[in-house]
Amino acid sequence: MDASRWAKRATSIAGLLTAWFLLAAVGPELLPGPAATAASFAEQVQQSSYWDAVVASTVRVWMAFVIAAVLAVPIGLLIGWNAMVGDFVFPPLELLRSSPPIAWIAFTILVVPTATLGLPVIGIIEVENIVFIAFLGAFFPILLNTIEGVRGIDEEFSRAAASLGAASWQTFRHVIYPGALPSIHTGMIVGMGLAWVNLVAAEMTGVGGLGFLTWSAFTGGSYPVIIVGMVSIGALGYLSSAIVRRAGISQIPWQETQAA
């Protein structure tokens, strides 16, 4: 990207900061300004409780994302590829999707157990029940985009593969899967964003993490910490999405690259 575009972007962010500064100076008495927030931030990063919250939220969101991707991509590929699988598997998923993940919080905390998974290489990990809420946020966008990705592949690619001697599973491997990748990638970026949204909401119920840090600052009346929480969640969310975007682009080198 050229320098003038960076300059424009930097200017617009400087504008936002200035507006915040002015609003804090003349506006509502309780709104902390940039300076107060920065001071609070400096204080927070020296406390282990802040870093515990950062680690807790980050681990939860990535667990949710990985489990969602590992389940949603194969299920979505099968639903999109095979009409019969689609008819059997998709309707119940559509029903479950009709309740937004946040509506699942009470149910999850009461009913869903914290699971212990034994994984090869990684070893034993504990998946807290709250991860399920973030998982729901990520699962459906990845699933729906995977299905769309498969259905959007021109039938002539499958025909071409068949006429070149590809068996059905080879068509799946060489046409359906790679053909759906760009759409899967989009679903993952959206899914990561929604995993954060839903995790933060779920954490506010009192299970630690940055969501809880922000919420307890509200109940404790420490206004700058609320903004520190908001900014931290925003930064980590942005970073997570950037990682997913980058990793995805490396998997689809054949796509004409678009500006980030």
């Binding site: 002539e156 690619f157 025909r159 071409a160 060489h174 790679p178 054949w254």
Partner: peptide
């Protein structure tokens, strides 16, 4: 319309 696999 050519049907080369764009991903290969």
């Amino acid at each position: 319309e050519n049907r080369l696999f764009p991903w290969k």
